[in-house]
Computed example of a mutant assay.
Amino acid sequence: MDKCIAYPIMPLLRLTFGLIVLICCFVLLFALPNSPLQYPIQGYTVQPLSSSVIPGSGEKELIIKSRSLELLNDVLVKVSYTSTVYHINTGDLGLHSQIFFLVYNNSQVTIATKTFLRYEQLKVLLDSIRKFYSTIKVIVADDNFEPEHITGENIQHYIMPPAQGWFAGRNLAVSQVTTKYFLWVDDDFLFTEKTKIEKLVEVMEAVPELDVVGGSVKENQFYFSLIYEEGEETEGGCLYRKSNKKLHSVPGYPQCFLASGVVNFFLARTDAVQRVGFDPKLQRIAHSEFFMDGLGYLLVATCGDVSIDHQHVARSARYRKFRNPRKEDSEFKLQLHFFKNHLKCIKYG
């Protein structure tokens, strides 16, 4: 188990289809500070060539599944980890093993969405969520003209004044989230076997600096980068949005890459997104604008191995009337960017 010597063992406990799953993975353990500085810390130390009653195995990963938390705890008491490499400087960081326990269950994540003129699609979405996550909390912001009652266990339905817009609905939904993370989905999405929330949580927990991790929608990952060129003090700078442009991979997760913005299916740290917020002045087309406002505040990544499906439903004429932007909407959006963010130009490519 040589590779265990350089990194801590982080067992990840997650609930999937009613099973309690313990996964041991290898990540470096840092203490999170109240300042921009962080530092590595020592956890549980295993003496060279000795055994300790702690989860471990001869492989990189140990998975223990159980439907009973009590049974799982009983198993953990009897599983031991054995150090197999001797070094005189065993107290040095990187030459000993650390043990850190992280518990994940449905109480860590809330699913949030906004609905408008698509109750049928919303009900299909909720049914698909319950198929894979039977108890996870779902928050629905609703600005329909004729509200319907949306009921169900762990579903919170908030009715807004009619046609307030997408970002106003996002603000309302996210303001009611009390969990560490929330998963944003559109009301016409569809959960599948590939919609693994726990995979996104694993990445966020392993890389605490990340604020948003996106997946893909019907195999469309959609990500973009934002480049800001500072201009003169009197006229502002220029912002360039480049589609399908990503940065380097996330350490330890080659399927994930850093980017500036991601598709409209993402897991986010609640407190980080609440600090940036969604500008309620933008009512129609406004997805990229959230990431533009978050530039310099949010660290974003995209992971291609987690996906969600999209329902194939024809849009009604009434819905299209509100969905499609008018010329004055596009002009107002640019004016808002220029004045709010002190820009002289925005370019899309």
Rank of each mutant, 00 (worst) to 15 (best):
V103M: 04
R269S: 11
R130L: 10
L19I: 00
K194Y: 12
T234F: 08
R323Q: 02
D186S: 06
I150M: 06
I63V: 14
I346Y: 09
L76K: 09
K196Y: 05
Q311I: 13
L247H: 06
P48K: 03
I155F: 06
I346M: 09
T178F: 07
H287S: 05
D293A: 15
A168L: 12
M160P: 00
S80L: 03
L13Q: 04
P280R: 06
K60H: 09
L76D: 01
G261I: 11
L93A: 06
T234K: 15
T90S: 08
R320S: 00
Q38D: 07
S134V: 15
V77E: 13
R320V: 00
K333A: 01
E235V: 14
F265G: 08
A301F: 08
K60W: 02
P161M: 08
I23L: 11
P251H: 12
S316Q: 00
L336D: 04
E61H: 09
G58Q: 05
G58H: 03
D188C: 02
E205S: 15
H342G: 05
D188Y: 03
V213P: 02
V262I: 14
L295R: 14
D143T: 04
E232V: 05
I41W: 08
L15T: 15
Y158D: 10
V85H: 04
P11Q: 07
R170S: 10
E209M: 10
D293M: 15
F290C: 07
D279Y: 01
L200V: 10
V124R: 13
G231R: 04
S134I: 14
H287N: 13
E233V: 12
V174L: 12
G43F: 02
G165K: 05
F278N: 07
D279L: 02
V300K: 12
K60M: 08
G56M: 02
Y104S: 09
A168H: 14
R67I: 04
N34W: 12
L126W: 06
R14I: 01
K344N: 14
A31R: 15
V306I: 15
F265V: 08
N105C: 07
E198F: 14
N264L: 03
H157D: 09
F339Y: 04
S57M: 01
S107L: 12
D2M: 03
R118P: 01
A141Y: 01
R269E: 14
Y223R: 03
A268E: 13
S330Q: 01
P208E: 11
G237C: 04
E202D: 14
Q121D: 12
A141W: 05
E146N: 08
I150S: 06
C24N: 11
N89D: 13
P251R: 02
A31G: 10
L200I: 09
I111A: 06
V174M: 08
P147W: 04
W166Y: 15
H96S: 13
Y104E: 09
K78M: 04
F101W: 10
S288R: 05
G91R: 11
